[in-house]
Simulated assay, not measured.
Amino acid sequence: MFHRCFLTAAGLAIAFFAAPASTAPLQEGVDTAFDQIVSAAADAGLAPVVAIDHARLAAAEGVEMPPARVQIFSDPAVNTTLLAQDIRAGLDLPFRALAYAGADAVQVVYTSADFLKRRYGLQDAEALAAFDAALAPALDGLDGITPMPVPTQGLAADYGILALQSRHDVPETVARLRAIVAVQSDTVWFGEIDFTAEAAALGVDLPPAVLLLFGGPAPGGVAMAKFPSIGVDAFYQKLFVHAAPAGGSVVLFNSIVALAELHYGASAPPHAMLDERLTATFAKALE
């Protein structure tokens, strides 16, 4: 179940933002690639979750960054099969693909089954193949662009995953995280996915598991300025909350430093600052 809670009236105004002349050709290319991904995903029967225009959101807050747009879309059956193997994999579900301006050309990056296999130690070859097979049609037919998976060189088990323990159950933990996100003046709420409800609709029982999606256009734009490909997982922040076996909940989220190092082999001070801010904010919510 996906609950939509998109942008404020100020956020909606970004639709009318015009890219600077120097980036306009790349912006047009990113928009074209993004539209092709969205159309192909719909034709393949994949359910849209949320579309995020990183650069235009950042520009509305006075921050410049390269054109970048991410589409998140879902197949509940694929999600459920993988979550049944390791509930923590919900941090990297559902599907997502980012069209962005590289150094001199438009590029597309996506998360592959190999990424999931390496990060969570998933071993079900059939389920992993089904993930890639379901995603493939959304990436077919891009004009002059070969989609590339998120790099996996150096990716090991639990790479870049930050975890916090909560003594509260999943509904209470989610409510507390929602509340603390809502009071951040520079943050936009994008929505949430209830993976347990998705599974129940398919007749499968999963422990309580919810993915929260939100982002900070200004700090996110600064973090992505020279690292645009991390926008497949960053700028919008993913908070994954699942029930802990011994009671309470576990909250998982990505280290921005780790994402930058995975994609580019280096990170920048804003990435560490974001990691520190997010960790402190979430920890406060769980007190």
Results as ranks from 00 to 15, higher is better:
G221I: 04
G144L: 09
A101N: 10
Y159R: 02
A244H: 15
T281M: 14
N254Y: 01
V250P: 00
A89Q: 08
A138E: 06
P94D: 03
P137F: 07
A136G: 02
D275F: 01
A127Q: 11
G45Q: 13
Y159T: 12
Q184S: 14
V106C: 14
G144H: 06
Y110G: 04
A77M: 13
F73Y: 12
P269F: 00
L211Y: 09
I14Y: 08
P171A: 10
V30P: 06
Q153H: 14
K238T: 09
H242A: 12
A272E: 05
A201F: 02
A234V: 01
V204G: 08
L202G: 04
V38H: 07
W189P: 00
V150Y: 03
V170R: 09
G265Y: 04
D31F: 00
I256T: 00
E64M: 13
L278I: 11
Q71W: 12
G62N: 07
A9V: 13
G11A: 09
I52C: 07
A234L: 01
S267V: 02
Q237H: 11
A272T: 00
T111R: 05
P147F: 08
G90W: 04
V49G: 01
E172F: 01
G247L: 04
L98A: 01
V188M: 09
V204W: 07
R4K: 09
L26M: 15
E261N: 06
L213Q: 13
E198T: 05
Y264C: 01
G265K: 05
L164I: 12
H242K: 10
D104E: 11
Q85G: 09
G160W: 06
A97Y: 02
G144T: 09
R96H: 04
A246F: 11
T111G: 07
Y100E: 12
Q165C: 04
G29K: 06
V49S: 07
L116F: 03
P25S: 07
R56F: 02
A129Y: 00
A246R: 05
G248Q: 09
L26K: 02
P217I: 13
A19P: 01
L83T: 14
I52H: 08
V170S: 12
D53S: 14
F227M: 01
N79L: 02
F282M: 13
L135T: 08
L252G: 02
V210E: 07
D104R: 06
I14E: 15
A55V: 12
L142M: 13
H242L: 13
T81L: 09
F73P: 00
G154V: 10
L93E: 02
G62H: 03
L139K: 09
L262F: 05
P208N: 15
A163P: 00
A55M: 10
T187M: 14
V174A: 12
L164G: 07
S22H: 12
L83P: 08
P48F: 02
R167H: 14
F235L: 04
A84H: 05
A258Q: 02
V50T: 14
A103D: 15
P66A: 10
L213D: 05
E28G: 05
A18T: 15
E64D: 15
L206E: 06
L142I: 09
A101W: 05
G216H: 08
Q71C: 06
L83N: 11
A179I: 03
P245H: 05
T196F: 02
A156H: 14
L213P: 06
L26P: 07
Q123I: 14
F6Y: 08
Q237K: 11
L252D: 12
A68T: 13
D169R: 15
A225M: 03
T196C: 07
Q85D: 14
I161W: 06
M148K: 15
